[in-house]
């Protein structure tokens, strides 16, 4: 049974199509990266999955059924903008939201202590949210999202504004959750994080799917037939190389379609040139994103 199934989703706002014929699924124990440029329809998709709004047409199933009250207790949601009750202490806030997810007080307290210790926030548990830094508040909100041990976790830009230490900590926790069989949908603009922790990726643009599959499949699909080399000296003309692109630290050799990279390696060695680096070029997810989205995100 799929954790999340989205079938032929359509949604429009006054004259503007936000989601157009979107279909995808997420398996249990998988992290799906949901990426796309601003206004692509990611947030609308998430809101429809969470039943914050109804689609114009299409269907969403969570663990094989329509969203209901019981389902909500199995979902953890971390929105992009992190808002909390400023006047509550961290522990009171966590326990309140845990109770709204159906946890009893003693279990929630026990779990909260574990998570607070793991994130280094135990000593600050009695501080009011307004007394905390933004990063600390985000950690607390992350705890609120997962305290009730949800089966499905949806996070929108979970690491934005976090320092590298906390980012690494959260990523480890997210990976652990996946390894424990949790399903995670991670919406972010940070492609390096998608590459690091996601299993599959769904890219949307103008409300439609433009990319969908595992990270390896996607990269392989966009792999250019070229190698990056760094050698001592000049590389002469090589049969099978149709283009040379000079870069600061390496030369990119674009190969003919019938030329394997191994052949080029042999030919360079036959020239007696010392090779410092020889690498088959694989595009980064960021490069793929830029290519598909058609925008220059610096």
């Amino acid at each position: 049974m799929k954790a999340v199934e989205v079938n032929h989703l359509y949604k429009s706002y006054t004259g503007k199509r936000a989601v157009e014929d979107l279909s995808f699924s997420v398996d249990p124990g998988e992290i799906l990266g949901l990426i796309g440029p601003n206004g692509a329809g990611k947030s609308s998709t998430i809101k429809i999955i969470l039943d914050f709004m109804k689609p114009d047409s299409g269907e969403v199933k969570i663990f094989g059924q329509q969203m209901d009250e019981a389902c909500k207790n199995q979902i953890g949601y971390l929105p992009e903008e992190k808002g909390l009750y400023k006047k509550l202490t961290a522990i009171d806030l966590i326990l309140y939201f845990a109770s709204l997810k159906g946890m009893d007080k003693s279990s929630a307290k026990e779990k909260a202590d574990v998570l607070l210790r793991r994130t280094g926030m135990f000593e600050s548990r009695k501080k009011k949210i307004k007394e905390m830094s933004k990063g600390m508040g985000q950690v607390i909100q992350f705890i609120v999202t997962i305290i009730h041990d949800p089966k499905l976790i949806i996070m929108d830009e979970p690491f934005s504004g976090m320092d590298p230490v906390n980012t690494e900590l959260m990523k480890n926790i997210v990976s652990d959750l996946r390894d424990n069989g949790k399903t995670i949908i991670l919406s972010t603009h940070q492609m390096n994080q998608v590459e690091e922790i996601c299993d599959r990726v769904l890219m949307v643009n103008d409300g439609s799917e433009v990319l969908y599959g595992s990270i390896e499949e996607v990269k392989a699909r966009f792999r250019q037939h070229s190698v990056q080399v760094n050698v001592e000296g000049e590389i002469g003309d090589l049969p099978g190389v149709i283009e040379k692109k000079l870069n600061k630290d390496f030369v990119e050799l674009v190969l003919a379609s019938d030329t394997r990279p191994q052949i080029i390696l042999d030919r360079i060695r036959e020239q007696g040139i010392d090779i410092n680096r020889f690498e088959v070029k694989t595009p980064s997810l960021n490069e793929i994103f830029l290519k598909l989205a058609g925008a220059d995100h610096e």
Binding site: E69, I75, Y77, P79, K82, G83, L84, Y85, F97
Partner: peptide
Amino acid sequence: EEKESRLIEVLFSSVS
């Protein structure tokens, strides 16, 4: 306040 801080979304993910 809940709307401005988007806390309303977290609440909606838990209650009707």
